[in-house]
């Protein structure tokens, strides 16, 4: 196993529960200072992988290094972790809870109270330090839990589904905090089944499905690799005849869809040239490249790897249930 400056290194990590393989032969390298999205549908193996990275679970086989150590147990004070299943001591006061977690993370007592107040204010909750945790709303608690994950200024921050259950305003605040932590220099591994969130925050995406890694690339690379060959066409006259468009060279199909037309181009055809020719053939109100949705990429990868069409459809339906449509 190499000893590069990676924040997280997994080599051939496998974990089974009884007869179920949760994670199979997973290789993963996350460089220091990166912001990685760890995506996949529910049950894909994301949380199990994260728990192994955190040394909460231990792999059946494979090698694992976290911040250069063989076990996260040796580096827990440098890791911030917001688990998917998170909770607090409901009877404890907010400040006492955060101070307790901070002390467990090795933060010295000196100035701890002030640090707690500053972090609580940073997430927009100044003044709640004296309240019992049970008095806070779910969204407020989630912010407190995020503070508990970052109060010791970790080198590595692992966030498992950090946005679940948050309203849009809180979601935006939390996104800003994650970006701020990244800007501070923390390496961030961010797990979600909502692919749009990964796209908005991360610069690199790891896709996992049924415990196996399906994709591990920068978002920009994914964009170029899964180059679009579909356009969205909205004629100036909604009732205009699009037969001329269908007859253009390189156009495979032109089908009406939700008040506009989906124009499919032949593989390898020049997109810019097609746009010019369509605009010349028909007065258009709007014509643009239809950017591929992340879930499309995901389903395509799954299908390419041999899953049946039915399995791919089921996966697409599952992803559609879980997330708003996301485009890269």
């Amino acid at each position: 196993m190499s000893t590069t400056g990676a924040a997280i290194e997994l080599r051939g990590v496998t974990k089974t529960f009884g007869g179920t393989t949760a994670v199979a032969n997973l290789d993963l390298t996350i460089p220091r200072g990166a912001l990685y999205g760890f995506i996949g549908p529910n049950g894909a193996g994301k949380t199990t992988s994260i728990r192994m990275i955190m040394s909460i679970l231990f792999p059946d086989s494979g090698e694992l290094k976290v911040l250069g150590r063989d076990s996260a147990l040796d580096a827990k004070d440098k890791i911030g972790y917001l688990p998917e299943e998170r909770g607090v001591y409901r009877k404890m006061r907010v400040a006492a809870y955060l101070m307790y977690i901070a002390r467990l993370k090795g933060v010295p007592d000196k100035g701890l109270s002030e640090r707690v107040s500053a972090y609580v204010a940073r997430v927009g909750l100044a003044g709640v330090e004296g309240k019992r945790c049970e008095e806070l709303s779910k969204g407020m608690l989630q912010k407190i839990q995020f503070v508990a994950a970052i109060i010791h200024e970790p080198d590595l921050l692992i966030l498992d589904e950090p946005f679940s259950g948050l309203d849009p305003v809180s979601m935006r605040q939390l996104r800003e905090q994650i970006i701020a932590e990244h800007a501070r220099g923390a390496t961030i591994l961010f797990s979600t089944h909502v692919m749009q969130q990964a796209e908005e925050i991360c610069d690199h995406v790891v896709m996992i499905h049924r415990g196996r890694k399906m994709l591990d690339d920068p978002v920009s690379s994914i964009r170029s690799r899964y180059d679009p060959r579909a356009l969205v066409l909205e004629p100036l006259d909604a009732g205009a005849d699009v037969a001329g468009v269908r007859a253009l060279a390189g156009v495979e199909s032109c089908e009406r869809h939700e008040g506009a037309y989906n124009v499919e181009l032949e593989p390898g055809f020049d997109v810019a040239g097609a746009i010019s020719r369509i605009a010349a053939a028909l007065p258009v109100a709007r014509i643009e490249v239809k950017r591929p949705r992340l879930e499309d990429v995901f389903v395509q990868i799954v299908t390419d790897r041999g899953d049946s069409a039915d399995a791919a459809r089921a996966l697409r339906a599952e992803l559609a249930d879980q997330s708003p449509q996301a485009a890269i």
């Binding site: 955190m54 040394s55 909460i56 147990l73 827990k76 004070d77 890791i79 911030g80 972790y81 688990p83 299943e85 998170r86 909770g87 607090v88 001591y89 409901r90 977690i101 467990l104 993370k105 839990q145 508990a148 994950a149």
Partner: peptide, 16 residues
């Protein structure tokens, strides 16, 4: 209580 309130995983991220 710690297990059912899910605070246990937060603790396990800090201690063994």
């Amino acid at each position: 209580e710690e297990k059912s309130s899910r605070v246990i995983e937060v603790l396990l991220s800090a201690v063994s």
